[in-house]
């Protein structure tokens, strides 16, 4: 019996990432779409895509939201956790998650973020951290590194004027209602796989009704870092990760 040879597609664009021109809006080397790919793969693998509802913020991450095959609501800048709270409480059997940027989540969105943490909402918050406001042209964000030049810190971030980078995963881990808080990056294959595991664990917490889950993903932003894509990955390794250590900051299966 001779085995006929079959051609199959081993890897490609996940089905949940729709084939829309909006992906083309991303700058060369921007890793937001890689973050979106991970979300699509995880929700597909967990079999929850059909009951997922995505709340997108305002910023570069939002373009991904328009091109993911979930029911999606675009929120006012920073308010995604508010919308997610209402949607989840009204439909507790859905999987509700927000996709936000660092400015969206912890600058203008700090109020709703802390509100959701305080209430321990049963939602998943994913924050793409590219240490600046991307869409608006590269301004200072709460996560901008010390001495990092942005269009609003032309001489570089200084402590006396702009304070210090905000550590959001550690902040989230400090709340009782948080079941899971982790930070990953996409600057190499190991970190890519690790980040996918973090996102999967986060959604598992929501599936198991444990508590709020938060995953931060460091994402390269070559144009606003004034680096090439490959230099951006090195900058993540040498500068960003030392400031924002990767790992799981809280991981519990029950909140007493």
């Amino acid at each position: 019996m001779n085995n006929s040879i079959v051609k199959e597609r081993a890897w490609g664009r996940p089905e949940l990432c729709l084939d829309l021109p909006v992906w083309g809006l991303y700058c060369p080397g921007c890793q937001h779409p890689v973050g979106a790919r991970l979300i699509a793969e995880v929700l597909d693998e967990l079999g929850i895509a059909d009951r997922a509802i995505l709340i997108i913020g305002v910023g570069c991450h939002a373009f991904s939201g328009f091109a993911l095959n979930f029911d999606v609501v675009s929120s006012c800048h920073g308010r995604a956790p508010d919308l997610a709270t209402a949607v989840k409480r009204i439909h507790p059997d859905t999987i509700v998650f927000s996709l936000q940027g660092d400015g969206d989540c912890i600058a203008i969105g700090a109020g709703p973020f802390i509100g959701a943490l305080t209430r321990g909402e049963m939602i998943t918050i994913i924050m793409l951290n590219n240490t600046n406001y991307g869409t608006t042209g590269g301004q200072l964000a709460p996560t901008t590194l010390m001495e990092q030049r942005t269009t609003t810190t032309p001489e570089g971030r200084t402590a006396d004027r702009e304070g210090y980078p905000a550590h959001v995963a550690e902040l989230a881990a400090g709340f009782k209602g948080t079941a899971y808080s982790a930070r990953g990056a996409l600057n190499n294959l190991a970190n890519y796989k690790r980040t996918k595991k973090y996102i999967k664990t986060a959604f598992q917490k929501q599936i198991n009704n444990v508590g709020l889950s938060y995953v931060e993903v460091i994402s390269a932003c070559p144009p606003n870092w004034h680096l090439s894509p490959l230099e951006s990955l090195e900058w993540i390794e040498e500068k960003v990760i030392p400031e924002f250590p990767l790992g799981e900051f809280k991981n519990v299966d029950r909140i007493e």
């Binding site: 085995n3 006929s4 040879i5 079959v6 051609k7 199959e8 597609r9 081993a10 890897w11 490609g12 664009r13 990432c17 084939d19 992906w23 083309g24 991303y26 060369p28 080397g29 921007c30 890793q31 937001h32 779409p33 890689v34 790919r37 996409l186 294959l189 890519y192």
Partner: peptide
């Protein structure tokens, strides 16, 4: 066909195919 290139591509520009002996086809 490990897929690393596809995972890291931010433009969804790469597809990887493989030819395998029948009976063990796997959806990519």
């Amino acid at each position: 066909a490990c897929g690393a290139c596809v995972w890291m591509c931010p433009s969804f520009a790469i597809d990887v195919y493989r030819w395998v002996e029948a009976g063990e086809a796997k959806a990519g």
